[in-house]
Nucleic acid binder design. Structure first.
Lengths: 234, 234
DNA sequence: CGTTTTATCTAACACTGTTAAAATTACGCG
DNA sequence: CGCGTAATTTTAACAGTGTTAGATAAAACG
């Protein structure tokens, strides 16, 4: 017997299903995603897919995990491209890459950070590690910037609330979280600011008042850089 | 004939349908919402609902509009309760009321700012005015604070990007937008920051790293107050 | 070749939104 | 009161959905 060959065939089939789902998702949005549609496009029938995914929820979860790593890779690449520069520039690059990926993959992004499928319930324990990968890029930048003295922490971020400091202390050193508390905190609030802009933009809620959302985002990223304490001259 | 009586009956039926939908939504989430479920609970059949709503999309849109005004009223009330105080305190009150409403009505909030129903497409031109009402509360606070000299604009917000300034200038004076450009801009970025925190919190994405999200939000609101230039002493 | 495992299909169930047509109810007026 | 009209509501049906059970085809192994 050749389990490799069979397993490979099985994995290929899983990939083909996911690719078809992604294509359907891109063409017709979340409403166009259905097992029967996927199966028809692949030349088979819906129940056949159950040999590769236990349910449509499992399939969606797989798509979400893939999308998270795709986002993380885009963000990591953007960071790597300017790795030689200072933390401020790296953070700017990461922020713009993050937004760009969201705008280029709106359905995937809503799959990650919205809940476009009513029947679908996100298995938080599974998806969070995938979500964390992008976050850690930001956290690492802050960690290094703090260590290198690129950041002069403003008063409001110098002393963290004790409850939060406790959580962050407990986290530091744990599984991949080798960043100091301040880096994690700054990364978290940066993530939230970034995320808010992107989501409002994706839903076209901020365009009517601001108009040029590109300029808004660029300006706000610059403001963020200053407000977290990056020294302007550097 | 008494059109008033019939119209009133019709409006009451519409309200009953929406209330039933809200109850179903609260009990079973977005997945539990269906015309047949609503009809069954009301003691009628699904096609009967079509005399009150053209489609389930129309019904959802109505729910969204109601939720937007409910959010706006909560925010306006929070502002009114501290109307005598300074802009900083008003903004803090509004921010917390906003978050509180979101946490107390997670499904409604996702209905507003997510797209929980795949087949549903938001009629932006209809929902945006409703969304704007909450936004205008924040904008008004900023407008008054700027006028009263409560705000000493930091460098990064003193000069706005020309593309944005142009949009904001065009908006000022138009339909209810009597706020100066800087007030609108500060309100927009505050909204985005607020929104990002709330969304990440609703999806339980920020708890694993921060822990005490109440403390995080309170701290970030305080940071926002300072960063937009509210004088600390006031 | 036969056997056994793997993969896929057909049929069915309980749902979904929606439409057409029929049936029922309520109302105003002579 | 009773008739006629208009407003409601129901039944039946269509085309979808995810999912399961059981039969069937295909491939792999001895």
């Amino acid at each position: 017997m050749q389990p490799d060959r069979r397993d490979r065939r099985r994995l290929e089939a899983r990939e083909e299903i996911k690719d078809t789902a992604r294509a359907l998702l891109a063409e017709q949005g979340a409403a166009g995603l259905s097992l029967r549609a996927i199966a028809k496009r692949m030349g088979m029938t819906a129940p056949g897919l159950y040999h590769y995914f236990g349910s449509i929820n499992d399939l969606i979860t797989a798509l979400i995990l893939d999308a998270f790593t795709q986002l993380a890779e885009a963000v990591e690449k953007a960071d790597a491209d300017v790795a030689s520069r200072g933390g401020a520039e790296r953070l700017v690059a990461v922020a713009h890459a993050w937004r760009r990926w969201a705008l280029d993959h709106p359905i995937d992004f809503q799959l990650l950070y919205g809940s476009p499928i009513p029947t679908y319930e996100q298995p938080t324990d599974t998806t969070y590690p995938a979500a964390r990968r992008s976050f850690l890029v930001t956290a690492s930048i802050f960690a290094q910037a703090i260590e290198c003295g690129e950041i002069d922490l403003p008063e409001e971020y110098r002393r963290l609330p004790p409850e939060i400091a406790r959580s962050l202390d407990a986290l530091t050193g744990l599984e991949g979280h080798d960043q100091p508390p301040h880096a994690l905190y700054l990364a978290a609030i940066s993530w939230a600011r970034l995320h808010g802009h992107i989501m409002l933009e994706l839903f076209h809620l901020i365009q009517p008042v601001i108009g040029d959302v590109d300029a808004l985002f660029a300006h706000e990223v610059n403001a963020l850089i200053r407000q977290v304490g990056f020294t302007p001259s550097q």
